[in-house]
Amino acid sequence: MKPGLIDLNDKTVVVTGASGGIGRAAAIAFAQHGARVALLARGEAGLAGAKRDVELAGGSSITIPVDVSDADAVERAADTVERELGPIDIWVNVAFSSVFARFHEISPEEYRRATEVSYLGYVYGTMAALERMRRRNRGTIVQVGSALAYRGIPLQTAYCGAKHAIQGFNESLRCELLHEKSAIRTTMVQMPALNTTQFTWVLSRLPEQAQPVPPIYQPEVAGRAIAWAAAHPRRREYWVGASTVATLLGNAVAPGLLDRYLARTGFASQQTGEPRPDDQPVNLWEPADQQIDRGYHGEFDDRSTPRSPQLVASKHHWTIAAAGAAVLVAATSLAVRLVGKAAH
C-alpha cells in the first residue's frame, strides 16, 4: 500500500447527518469499500433507510439517534460505536441545519440553533473522535465543507457563517496536530451545489422554492469524494466540482466584484420560480425524517450530473501537475531551439 493511503475495508467509520443528503451518500460509499458504518442523525425513519442502503451496498452498520448539538450525547454515541463496532478509525462530520432567509428575517434563537448544529456539532464530533484516537495515535477526521466556507452568498448567512467557522477551526486543529507530530489526520472536503433533500426541509422564508445554485451535482459525487479523502488524508483539502474551483479562485482574485455579481444574481439563482409549499417540513428544531424516510436525493435529478471531472483531477493533482510541468518544459525547450535556429 502506498504511504499515506488507508484501506477502508473493515474500518470503523462514523458519519454524522447520515440519514439523508451528503451523509447518507458518504455512508453508502464507505459501505461499498467494506467498512463498518455508524450512522448518526436525529430522524429514526431516515436512519432506518440509511441502514438498509448501507447493508445493500455491502457494509455493516448500526444506527444511533443523536442531536450533534448535544456534546454529551455525541460522547455517548462515540462510546456506543466503540463498544459495538470497535475502535473508531474515521469520523466524518456532515450534520447541519440552517435557514433560507434574509439576515433580518432570522430570529436570534434560529441563528443560535443553526450555529449549534452546523458548527458546534462539528466541534463536538471532532472532540469525541480525538479523545479516542489520541489513545491510539491514529485515525482520520473528515470535515465536510463547501465552497461557501470561503465565499458567502445572500440568503444563507447562518450556513455560510458556520462553514467559515469550520474552515478556521479545522486549520487551527491541523496545525496543532502537525506541531505534535501526531499520526492523526484531519482533512476538509469543499463541496459544490448538490441535489440533496435540504432544499425541501430546511426552514425557509423565501417566497419561492429553494434550489441549489447551478451547476448541480448528485450526492453520490460528494459521497465518493469523502471516501477518497478519508483514504488519502494527507491532503489538507479537496475541492469538488468545477464550480467550487471557479468560486474559490474568483473570490481570491476579485472578491468585491463577486459581491456585486451575487447581489444581482444570488437571490433568483437560489429559487426555482415556483411558490414554496406552505406545508413544507422544517428540520431546524425537529427531524423532518423522524416518521418518513425522505431518502437522500432532492427534487433536481433531471438537472443534476452524477460525475465531476474536476474531482478526478483533484484526486490525481500531483500527476496532472507533473504532466503539465513536463509539457511546459518541453514547449519551452522547443521554443528555445526554434529561436536559436532562427538566430543562425
Rank of each mutant, 00 (worst) to 15 (best):
L248N: 08
A342N: 06
G4R: 14
T319C: 01
V14Y: 00
G168F: 08
E82M: 01
S118P: 07
F199V: 11
E176I: 02
H297L: 15
T126L: 09
G4N: 12
A48H: 13
L178D: 06
I153E: 09
L177T: 04
A50P: 10
W91K: 04
A210Y: 05
R113W: 11
W228K: 05
I216K: 13
W201Q: 13
S172Q: 09
V94P: 03
P108N: 13
L40N: 04
L262Y: 11
Y217G: 11
G139K: 09
A71F: 07
L206H: 10
A162K: 02
T115M: 15
D289E: 12
A330G: 06
I6M: 15
A323Q: 00
R260I: 02
R136E: 12
G17L: 01
C160T: 06
R260K: 06
D89F: 08
E286K: 13
S182K: 13
A128W: 15
A158M: 03
I292S: 03
A227K: 11
V13H: 02
K181H: 09
Y124S: 03
A45I: 13
Y159P: 08
D289T: 05
V327S: 00
A222V: 11
W201V: 12
G23I: 00
R235G: 04
T16H: 00
A322G: 00
G298E: 06
S60P: 10
E105S: 02
R134A: 04
V221A: 14
A210M: 15
P212E: 09
P306H: 03
